[in-house]
Amino acid sequence: MNSISVFCGSSEGNDKDIINTAFKLGKTLAERQITLVYGAAKIGIMGKVAESLIENGGKTIGVIPTFLKTKEIVHTELTELITTENMHDRKIIMYEKSDGFIIIPGGFGTMDEFFEITTWGQLGLHTKPIGILNINGYYDPLLEQCKVMVNRGFLKQENLDAVVVDDTIDGLLNKMNNYKPLPAPKWLNKEGL
């Protein structure tokens, strides 16, 4: 993987381990020469990942919609800054510029990004690895809910298994590098893509 989108919070939260791990993730991506693609902010957990990557000589691509682009929010030291018309276009560009996706702690926006990119994978619209960095068990309740969806027949186990999970950065990146995508759904009209 040459580039990874990191979906995470625009807030820092109150767990120091999450903040420290976000900073470590940026450093690790820089060391592995993996470009960060993210929401372009200098605030919150996403700002920590970008700050660390920049401090360690890494490349950063920030993608931000016009209505969020204020000097208080946008990071001014990025390798590349892309401004979009809206949130949907932001996600499409982040998808196009990434070889994989990592989800670290965040709120509703992070959940929106996670569920959209996993749904695209489930529909066969992409075969890129999606990883959850489960810092301090942050995503344990979400993963339990996903198991409920499987048990109640609303989600196939193979689609849940397509999301790789680890509580360490190196472990997650190794799983993502060894990711084997699901075959495209048989009912998918490939000409319509």
Rank of each mutant, 00 (worst) to 15 (best):
Gly137Asp: 08
Ile4Asn: 03
Gly26Ser: 01
Ala22Gly: 09
Tyr139Ala: 07
Asp161Val: 02
Leu173Val: 08
Asp161Ala: 10
Asp140Trp: 09
Leu188Ala: 12
Ile117Pro: 02
Ile4Glu: 04
Ile102Glu: 03
Glu77Val: 03
Val164Ser: 05
Ile19Met: 12
Asn20Thr: 08
Glu116Thr: 14
Ser52Val: 13
Asn151Pro: 01
Tyr38Trp: 14
Ala162Leu: 09
Asp161Phe: 02
Asn178Lys: 14
Asn178His: 14
Met176Thr: 00
Gly58Asp: 09
Asn177Met: 06
Cys8Pro: 09
Lys128Gly: 07
Leu68Glu: 07
Ser98Val: 01
Gly153Asn: 09
Ala50Met: 02
Thr79Glu: 09
Ala22Val: 08
Asn189Asp: 15
Trp120Leu: 12
Pro183Phe: 00
Phe67Val: 15
Pro105Tyr: 04
Leu53Asn: 02
Lys27Ala: 08
Trp120Asp: 05
Asp15Leu: 01
Asn136Pro: 00
Tyr139Gln: 12
Asn56Ile: 08
Ile169Asp: 00
Gly13Pro: 13
Leu29Cys: 08
Gly47Tyr: 02
Cys8Ala: 14
Glu191Met: 12
Met111Lys: 08
Leu143Gln: 11
Val74Phe: 05
Ile117Asn: 02
Gly107Gln: 10
Leu68Cys: 07
Thr83Ile: 15
Glu116Arg: 13
Lys97His: 11
Asn56Trp: 06
Val148Arg: 06
Leu29Trp: 13
Lys97Gly: 03
Lys190Ala: 02
Gly171Thr: 02
Met1Gly: 11
Asn174Met: 05
Gly137Trp: 07
Met1Cys: 06
Met46Lys: 01
Gln122Gly: 09
Ala184Thr: 15
Ala41Thr: 04
Lys42Phe: 10
Ala41Gln: 00
Cys146Ile: 15
Glu31Asn: 06
Ala40Trp: 05
Gly121Gln: 15
Thr70Arg: 12
Gly47Glu: 02
Ala40Pro: 01
Trp187Ser: 13
Asn134Ile: 08
Pro181Thr: 14
Val164Ile: 13
Met46Trp: 00
Asp112Lys: 02
Gly124Glu: 07
Thr60Gln: 07
Gly192Lys: 15
Lys97Glu: 04
Asn86Ile: 10
Lys59Tyr: 06
Phe154Gln: 09
Leu155Ile: 10
Ser3Val: 03
Glu144His: 13
Phe154Gly: 03
Ile132Asn: 13
Leu81Arg: 11
Leu172Ala: 01
Phe108Cys: 07
Gly47Cys: 04
His88Met: 11
Leu143Asp: 08
Asp89Gln: 15
Gly106Phe: 08
Lys97Tyr: 08
Val150Gly: 03
Met87Trp: 06
Thr60Lys: 07
Thr79Gly: 10
Asn189Tyr: 11
Lys91Ala: 02
Leu81Cys: 09
Pro105Ala: 11
Lys156Gly: 11
Trp187Phe: 15
Lys91Met: 04
Val148Cys: 04
Val163Phe: 11
Leu123Val: 11
Asp170Pro: 03
Asn86Asp: 15
Ser98Lys: 01
Gly47Ile: 05
Thr118Trp: 07
Asp99Phe: 00
Gly26Ala: 00
Ala22Ile: 09
Lys69Ser: 05
Gly62Trp: 12
His126Gly: 06
Leu68Tyr: 09
His75Asp: 15
Met1Tyr: 05
Asp166Pro: 08
Glu144Thr: 14
Lys69Cys: 04
Val164Asp: 04
